[in-house]
Design a protein around this nucleic acid. Sequence first.
RNA 1: GCGGGUGUGGUGAAAUUGGUAGACACGCCAGACUUAGGAUCUGGUGCUGCGAAGCAUGGGGGUUCGAGUCCCUCCACCCGCACCA
Length: 975
Amino acid sequence: MEYKFREIEKKWQQHWKDTNAYRVSNVSDKPKYYVLDMFPYPSGAGLHVGHPLGYIASDIYSRYKRLKGFNVLHPMGFDSFGLPAEQYAIETGQHPAETTKKNIATFKKQLDKIGFCYDWSREVQTSDPNYYKWTQKIFLELYNSYFCNTQKKAKPIKELIEKYATQGSKHFTAKQWNNFSATEKETWLMKRRLAHSAYGEVNWCEALGTVLANDEVVNGVSERGGHPVVKKKMRQWYLRITAYADRLLEGLEKVSFSESMKEMQRNWIGKSEGAEIKFKVGSRKLEVGDLVVYTTRPDTIFGVDFMVLAPEHEIIESITTAEQKKAVEDYITYVKSRSDRERQAEKNISGVFTGAYAIHPFSNKQIPIWISEYVLSGYGTGAIMAVPCGDERDFKFAKHFNIPITNIIGKYFNGNEANPSKEVILENSDFLNGLQMKEAVEVALQKIEDWDIGKRKVNYKMRDAGFSRQRYWGEPFPIIWKDGVPVALDENTLPLELPHVDKYSPGPEGEGPLANIEDWINTPEGRRESSTMPGYAGSSWYFLRYADPKNDKEFASRQATDYWNSVDLYIGGTEHAVGHLLYSRMWTKVLFDLGYIGFDEPFKKLVNQGMIQGSSRYVYRVQLGKQLGVKTKWSEGVFVSYNYIRDYETHVINNIEFAKILSKSEYFVEYINDNGFDLLNITPLHVDVNIVDGNILDIEAFKNWKPEYRNAEFITYLTLSDMDKGDSVGIYLCGAEVEKMSKSKYNTINPDDLCEQYGADTFRMYEMFLGPVEQSKPWDTKGIEGVHRFLKKLWRLFYSESTFKDGQHIDGKPIWTNDAPTPEELKVLHKTIKKIDEDTERFSYNTAVSAFMVCINELSDLKCYKKAVLEQVLILLTPYAPHIAEELWHVLGNEGSVLDATYPVYNAVYTTESSKEYPISINGKMRTTLIFPIDAEQKDVEPVVLANEVVQRWLEGKQPKKIIYVKNKMINVVV
RNA sequence: GCGGGUGUGGUGAAAUUGGUAGACACGCCAGACUUAGGAUCUGGUGCUGCGAAGCAUGGGGGUUCGAGUCCCUCCACCCGCACCA
């Protein structure tokens, strides 16, 4: 028998499916373990080899845990709402539901080929009404809840209404509340609801006809499509994630995420402690009012030399003096023309003086008030007090506009740059003199509060999350607007299904396509909300649904979520660091607060898989410069092998240089005859990596690749020895570069092809063999051969090789035996058990694969065909290469599936050695080795080491200063 | 600028606690078997050197009997955040 991986894999995949081998029950006496992958968006492009990296890692761990006696939940589903399907619908007229269905089918087929152990009976699709019914229901929970600031948790808004009606609030009495109109009441409630509606500046993208989240806008353009984005005021739904800022920060302490991931979330939340300080504003028109600034450095209050307001700050109009009016207006006009991104990225200092002055609350000094684009209206109070001697940005501003700088840190300030250190002593600061800045903060805060000129204030960079999309392909809001007041749909009427539409163009006034469907949008009760929910709505809670996916009474029963609890291992990319992970953490906390689930962190451990980069291949088209005006074959361009041009850094080479290239080829004479002197352009072009073997282009395949290359000509690489052999064709060498894997770069590799060519087991192990899971690395198909050879070598421990004799194919025979293993074989086995167990546990799959290779290499050398050893190895291998393991498990005559075998137990007895080969170093440099018994003492070792010939030579007759003997490690002779 | 990460052969990478640097593979070189092989097997392969030996984990310095690993410093690249007060 040969290793017929195609048959074997097909057979077992079918068998596992038929026997429901991956079905997992919510009832079990085994301990539970929940392994989850970030579910994919089913794009039309299908999977490339980068996607399964994390899936394979989680699959290995799931299977490993199962073998170790756990009841393992390892589900998969699809994040199937989203913009691309809708854009595709706009382009092709196909309904998103249709294309999504098709794409999911493709994804599932691709995933199944790789042999994952998903319990597909638990599959979720966010665009399935049976799923989004519960997304809508949870939205209503958010809508009907508020964040209680005393208890720091979400509570039903009913309780708040009750409180307002009986006790009132600091803004109104109970009596007033009871007399409020519905609209007035709702206005107050909206200030507290966890899902609330408000007018806000949003990232409006005209081209997509939609509003984008901050993290969906990249460099001022939409992440998808790269369209321009501008600010626009619109009524939006928001999630009050800011209420949970502190708990989201605290929660990071108890989860096992990487430090960098936690840091990213902390930065995103951006908590800062400081103070809001009031400054009286004076102008010729006398006092206008208070200007409130936010600062994290109240200790520097005496170093304030000017104020800076955001250009949007409402006070500007009333304080600007007549002389400055024109300048200020011009500046505001300028700022309006700039996107937020541009404003923040601007390195040049700009700003304008308002003509007004603030009064320093302690010193009564007059402080000029400026406006500048570097202060943003959305953060703090939109106004800052500028302290040039301690803040880099303020310093540059002061220098630029010649504003005098007050030095409050004496010798620590050199006049040339700001010194933001807190390790300095304050001077020139009245009651803060002589204090270190650290202590001064507290003293200043106290004084500010005593004098009632400000208060302590915690600020967050994070804003409430925009929750509306003016799009079609998302969850409809279960909301009807009645006289400007939102009314929640009765839960029993859910799901509110997406109506069918024929076209997907935006509705009026920037509304989504749903606004165009008259008989849907208008109801007897009022007008429906026309926006849909964003992509992260469905993904914020999907991990809960897997616990109880068919439940039509609740999103998941408490019993099911109590059993499966939070995800033990979550694997996915870093790109969701702040979006998805923060939102799902928030939703989990809300559902916990409201008593729906018993835990408040969704993911206990997070592993971020690295990206698999593409390894692109280039061909180089060389064309004559246009100015020659003579049409020859050279103006069409000819493809020049990379070896000739790799030394040219520029993409323009002159004709003498090119002649050098051509002199190496037969084209030389023809070219010189045809042409005069001119410049030549070299254009590197991506070529499909699938028609390049290593770096060698398949020229015929290239000609057939695209019509324009049908008659392409090539200058190939011919060595002199090739020519001697009469070869006149030569090879075309491509250039290579590591880039992101994407269709447009023609560097994608489809896992289907690899599974077809080498098998899923080879593919799985090779992806793991590439390097640590967390690390990004370029794909290189060449290396897969090594893993494939390994599996074939494993196979040959069970079957003799097939032979080909006298035109007859003679199949290999089973060669495994029931003989008792030798100590040496047992040593190999147990060494491997230990290594694989440890490596799998710590996700070091690349070293585990090498350990398998070492094991099989050694067993082959020992000619070990013994069942007692081999079947243990097969169990170890099952998580990595389940198909071949199952096949050979049965070849050995075992009953039942290897999936449920008992994981081997390491026994140190077999691996303990009686002696060790010690490295002998002289002054720390290894010079030779000597074998000593494992229990040898220093006194036993010394004479032998000193007597050694190599050691003697290095000693050159001198006495060693010291001999260091570390048991079981090494011996070092110090000379 | 701030925060995080990475830097080791021609390539992907090992080295879990400071203890034989380069395991395991790819590629390459040589050979065996074969009608053939892009199958399989054997040997070699960090660099310099005939050799003895020397040099090697981004550069420089330090701690140590001993440093890829610890400390200081500089550099390069990647990711995240960013005039965030």
